[in-house]
Amino acid sequence: MSKVVFEKVGKKYLSTWAVKDIDLTIENGEFVSFLGPSGCGKTTTLRMIAGLEENSHGKIYFDSDVVSDPLIKSFMLPEKRNVGMVFQSYAVWPHMNVFDNIAYPLKLKKLKKEQIKADVEKMMSIVELSGLELRKSSELSGGQQQRVALARGLVMKPRILLLDEPLSNLDAKLREKMRKDIRKIQQDLKLTMVYVTHDQKEAFQMSDKVVVMNQGRIEQIGAPADIQKSPISEFVADFIRSGE
């Protein structure tokens, strides 16, 4: 697991800033949520950690290694970063069964067959999917696809696991259970997790630290209790209140 550091990170399209002046440290083993309305830059920031977007300004570190610094044209490709990610659309490959979906990152690492089988089985029991190995992904429910995506992100023993609004397509009851499950897995495996959501309840319930964003900038960083007790700006106060 790694710590992630943002130093004055920004991304500019032509003349507009998608995100600007992001200074942020995500500690090893921490559960951090990016919270904000749609279009606030939270997903862009997450995708910059993955390397799916390139920042145009500032530096990003994993521990002490620079993974992106546009000034010296240094950029580590996403496939080299060893970061796991759970997409909003799940992105479970429809042409592979459950086992092959989860085993994919391990096959690319050229692990031995027995090793892959053992790792995948273990991860499937953690996300409670045991027995569904040969299921086609088209035969899975939304919640099950979610678990496949989670297992695939975890099985590679990533430095960080990124989750992009993973629960937004599930019904309310299932969402509640998944929140608890994800948090439990994070604590049991001592993972660094970054979680993007526009649901303040979700962010405050799950996180060690919440990053409230607005119009491409960070409004406030803090523990859930601190932010709720003393919001730093009217925007933050409004945003918290609107969810109650």
Binding site: A50, L52, L77, P78, E79, K80, R81, N82, V83, G84, M85, F87, Q88, S89, Y90, A91, W93, Y104, P105, L108, K109, A149, R152, G153, M156
Partner: peptide, 23 residues
């Protein structure tokens, strides 16, 4: 094909050619 199907493979460590072949 949704772009996230490719991105999920990149995150898993696949380079471009592997993505073309396996996805």
């Amino acid at each position: 094909i949704h772009p996230s199907l490719e991105e999920a493979a990149r995150i898993s460590g696949a380079d471009w050619w592997t993505i073309m072949k396996t996805i």
